[in-house]
């Protein structure tokens, strides 16, 4: 499935993600990493769950409002439901032990030049490239 190359929208979206990360640090002193924020509202619940739940609610409902206001967000999921369940479980376990994902390590941690985050980002990017190559060009799914 071909997707349209969107350099300006993607760059603009990236800048907004960055602004969000800066504001969360300036106001709340927190890393804008979705893994850490989400894990705090799952069992065993973290005591400061309220700001986490608010951040997640904002992140969910902003795109809803954007679409209701007439914006379009292209969306398509090539993998099957079975693969989504398997992939979801693997992502959950991986980000927990890896202490972060694309937002926490890839953006916030790399921006702080954290050696752990730089290492994590290189490792998961390579693993993702290999996985997609194997699924699409070796197995041919």
């Amino acid at each position: 499935m071909i997707t349209e190359f969107t350099p300006y929208l993607s760059l603009g979206g990236g800048v907004l993600i960055g602004i969000s990360a800066i504001l969360l640090m300036a106001f709340h002193g927190r890393i804008a990493g979705m893994t850490g924020i989400l894990a705090g509202i799952l069992p065993p619940f973290s005591s400061d769950w309220a700001w986490r739940a608010a951040f997640i609610a904002g992140a969910i409902f902003a795109p809803t409002i954007f679409v209701m206001a007439g914006g379009t967000i292209p969306f398509a999921v090539p993998p099957s439901t079975t693969l989504l369940v398997i992939g979801g479980l693997i992502v959950g376990v991986g980000v927990y032990f890896g202490s972060g994902c694309t937002s926490g390590h890839g953006v916030c941690g790399m921006a702080r030049l954290s050696p752990r985050s730089i290492t994590a980002t290189i490792v998961f990017m390579i693993a993702t490239f290999i996985t997609v190559y194997v699924i699409r060009h070796v197995i041919g799914a």
């Binding site: 980000v95 890896g98 490792v123 693993a127």
Partner: peptide, 10 residues
């Protein structure tokens, strides 16, 4: 963990 995450993301 990061390698595992990458596999799941892919």
């Amino acid at each position: 963990g990061s390698a595992t995450f990458g596999v799941g993301w892919g």
